[in-house]
Design a protein around this nucleic acid. Structure first.
Lengths: 170, 170
DNA sequence: CGGGCTGGTTCGGTGACCGAACCACAACGT
DNA sequence: ACGTTGTGGTTCGGTCACCGAACCAGCCCG
């Protein structure tokens, strides 16, 4: 969209949410942000997204309060609390994709960093039963990870090493 | 897409999931299916989606095994088990939209049909603590429902009466 | 046989997306 | 002082998806 025509069904929260994160690329950008990507160039190399589209989406996400744009020695985009609240959406979509498009198992595992327990569909640690907050969540290559995807670019490699969510790469 | 160019990041389940449900309209169609919409014409009137786009999306969803197309006295599109597994995605996105774009409260409430308990963010019934299956889930107008949205068309009105998920409208 | 209902397809116009090139600015080396 | 490199974008022409409106085909009903 870049919000040209909006969905008609204004009485549905889903439609409103989709106006923000429902376009092509948007949710992938958010996912990368969870995985520690913060720099414009890193989004480009990891997602292979056209730079103009990325610039548009980042502006939209900043305007909607999902990301902040921070000018330090380098420009950094970071998730706001509102953006962090998208984690259940990203997680459930990944789970669905794993279940139906990864016959060899999930390419990425999501664990409770404290005890290494896998997360169940509801987001609870299967080991301690706790609802795992984003900051205590660790992602790492899973049983279905394809090693052929290693070595293409340093950003992807960084993302594919075990790490806690929101920890910056590099 | 209608799958013209796919996302490059093939090692991520999220990208693969988005190739199916990541386009404009697709997730709204799935949501309507949860709410009991099954007929081509009902999708059109409720979503105000261009007919050609709807036809495309329905073909895609049937091809991907999210919906079935059943020719009886009338054509009916219904969610498959794979489609039903998208409920956590729809629910979490609705929750996020409610939290950030519905200051007057959720326009739609999601409850455990057995005891009327609201669902928590993880999909558990706040009353009995159980993880509520789709078939036991009821949706109804919530505190933020805008009555001005009533009476426009019979399909929307049917959707806005309390009902269990997947129960057909009409 | 005619008229309405349903489930689509066809069509021209518009706008979003695409990749590639270009640009501005800052840091650094020499 | 001057090129080089890196970074965060913008510009541009071509293509493709989406849009609304019109059209069409099969079915059921009288």
């Amino acid at each position: 969209m870049t919000l040209p025509s909006t969905y008609a069904d204004r009485n549905c929260s889903l439609a409103r949410a989709l106006e923000v994160v429902g376009e092509r690329w948007t949710l992938l950008i958010v996912r990368d942000a969870f995985f520690g990507v913060r720099r414009f160039g890193d989004f480009v190399t990891q997602l292979k997204i056209p730079r103009a589209v990325l610039a548009d989406r980042l502006k939209l996400l900043v305007r909607e309060g999902v990301l902040t744009r921070e000018e330090g020695p380098a420009v950094e985009y970071r998730l706001t609390p509102k953006g962090v609240e998208l984690w259940p959406v990203v997680r459930t979509l990944m789970t669905w994709g794993d279940a139906h498009y990864s016959p060899a198992g999930a390419p990425r595992s999501v664990r409770h960093d404290h005890d290494g327990g896998l997360l169940d569909p509801g987001g609870r640690c299967e080991r301690c039963g706790q609802l795992v907050p984003v900051a205590e969540t660790r992602v790492e290559p899973g049983p279905g990870f394809d090693p052929a995807d290693e070595g293409h670019d340093p950003v992807s490699d960084a993302i594919n090493t075990p790490r806690r969510l929101l920890d910056p790469i590099g």
